[in-house]
Design a protein around this nucleic acid. Sequence first.
DNA 1: AATGAATGAGTTTTCATTCAT
DNA 2: TATGAATGAAAACTCATTCAT
Lengths: 209, 209, 209, 209
Amino acid sequence: MLRTLTERSTGGEDKRRLILEAAVRVFARKGFHTCRVGDIAEEAGVAHGLLYHYFRSKDEVLECIFKETWADIVAAVRMVEETEEPARERLAGVAKILLRAWRRDPELVTVVVREIVRSPDLQNRINVIQEAFAAIERIIARAQADGEFRADVSAKLASFVFYGALEEVLTGWVLGTLGDGEQDVAAAERTVVEIVCGGLAPDRSAAAV
Amino acid sequence: MLRTLTERSTGGEDKRRLILEAAVRVFARKGFHTCRVGDIAEEAGVAHGLLYHYFRSKDEVLECIFKETWADIVAAVRMVEETEEPARERLAGVAKILLRAWRRDPELVTVVVREIVRSPDLQNRINVIQEAFAAIERIIARAQADGEFRADVSAKLASFVFYGALEEVLTGWVLGTLGDGEQDVAAAERTVVEIVCGGLAPDRSAAAV
Amino acid sequence: MLRTLTERSTGGEDKRRLILEAAVRVFARKGFHTCRVGDIAEEAGVAHGLLYHYFRSKDEVLECIFKETWADIVAAVRMVEETEEPARERLAGVAKILLRAWRRDPELVTVVVREIVRSPDLQNRINVIQEAFAAIERIIARAQADGEFRADVSAKLASFVFYGALEEVLTGWVLGTLGDGEQDVAAAERTVVEIVCGGLAPDRSAAAV
Amino acid sequence: MLRTLTERSTGGEDKRRLILEAAVRVFARKGFHTCRVGDIAEEAGVAHGLLYHYFRSKDEVLECIFKETWADIVAAVRMVEETEEPARERLAGVAKILLRAWRRDPELVTVVVREIVRSPDLQNRINVIQEAFAAIERIIARAQADGEFRADVSAKLASFVFYGALEEVLTGWVLGTLGDGEQDVAAAERTVVEIVCGGLAPDRSAAAV
DNA sequence: AATGAATGAGTTTTCATTCAT
DNA sequence: TATGAATGAAAACTCATTCAT
């Protein structure tokens, strides 16, 4: 499951992976601070002592979840960035990566969105997140330079709008306030891109017809 | 007796508010799970036992912050909804309320943005947030009916895009990854409305499928 | 209610009595250690601060309950002791005093039996209880001297048997394991006296016929 | 490793018993409500956290003392019931078991006598005591049917008299108001049986109404 | 007399982490 | 590797008691 968001699973691996996957499910269900180490172990079907054989602490488990999954997402986003397609297509690619990840591993996304993105302390984590933001921002900035997007808005702010829209949709799915069927996911993907890219289109009267 | 000349008793619920406001500051500074009940009491300048005179538990304090303090903001959103202005103006009004809240009470916004997402069970009991969403959705839906906005996207999804963009900007301010000066706030307000409303404008050619 | 076990109530008295009576009910229902001062106040319909106007502490409330009721019982037992009737009649009188008290104020008896009689620390309380025991013992000892009871058993031990039987019946009523209707009380009274006095009768063969 | 030569591991439930036995000593010495969990742990020579490894709460420790430790004694009573001896012998057996328990384990008896009566809600869940009562009642009832005991008194009431007498003697020992030497215990045993069985003997003339 | 807000010492309970086996 | 008994720091919460009003 883990590392599955963008790559293929390496197949049946060791207990470490078992624990990591159990942790994702438990964190998603009860929250990082609310759950106990024993909950993770129980979910994984191992003794809780074993967790400390593979990880230094409960915190490190969360950190590993993040490192071993978000890195993939960032890499995927980077690949999309380097495509020579129009910005709209590339943003659609980013949206697809983030939203389709949900369909593959909703719990993992839940944990990343809920626990890691807003973790108050760790700046190194945030730096990694910033890379995804930066990629989005660069896509937008280049589109502005190319005339594909209007240049009178801050590319950085625009990237926040785009990313925020995606994250809110994810949250909606997590909380069940938004349908998450196959159709819904596709519609969400389309709508977010359409609204944001539409709003970023230059010179609106000329754009028509 | 002596104090009456300079300080007037603000009524019975004096200390309760004092504790609630102290809690906002402490939660913003240390995080809900990281701080101790004693921290809140110390910040409020009262004995920790008094907290339990007004609240059943530490959790209830957080719940009250959402229900009582944040409620003002949601109420303001509702008032904007009832205005007879164009949807764009009304959404601008909503954006102004939410984003200006950052300058008015950054700690409160920090707590809401950071902690509300993390408490899975709390969210169900708190429909205050849902109501803000619903108001936004209604504004958009009516604009679609009036022809002000394009009708080929889900109003619900669009409300997620709008609210998500706003929340992400707030998150950027909370995490310090986005400038939050007077100018920045005004720009953010303008940009979010411009992008989203621009994307919802009806005069696009058949770009949408 | 209080002081009512043997004497007549003095009529409508003050708040102190109100609190004392409430305490009896609460102690009976929840136990002394388990209940809070607030429970007593609530039951009495007064603010809990008032309790400290009349009593020095929660412990003192219990002590007053004991002093102001057990003293009456002991006095009543003493009066019976001084009667010139046969020991059997006098023991029947003691049984009647103790068991009938139950009918008048079951909660009070519950508290005395449960909380005071087995209070681990206070010897002064126990001394008062000893007086009741001593009275019973003296009745038995004199009956042994008079030949009404067999003299080959310790009067002290016999008094424990008699008192224990009565207390167990009270406990049965308190716990609901023994019927406590009008008939049941009468039967219990008769049975205890019959068994114990029967067992204390001298020279069993001669006693028959 | 090293310890194996002199001390053998007594099995997994080693510490559990250790804690239970320590609790009996501490409860006997300080009382259930007066002692702290730390006292029990200290007495047992373990960290206080370990108590919660074996028991859910302090209350559960008390409950287990009744259910597990006292159960042996009740089981012994049952065995006596099944003997084919005369009722008097069997009641003597019951008396011996209960009263000799004082010399064998005075602290356990203290706890049972002192605390069981004080916990109203505990009593309902613990039928161990009720079973002892039932056994006594059955012995008496059968003796009445067989003509060994008079049939004109309620067997249930008679069982209360017998059990109450025994418990009161134990209480006397616990509170130190009754001598508890080897001789005293033997005398008490004899006296209780003699009085109660004497009182239940059928060859009384029509003393009973 | 009466109130109930305020105090804070004292307790139970939790749970991440260690470590002998 | 794997277990789970054992530890103990840390925290939430309780509640008798005080006291200004």
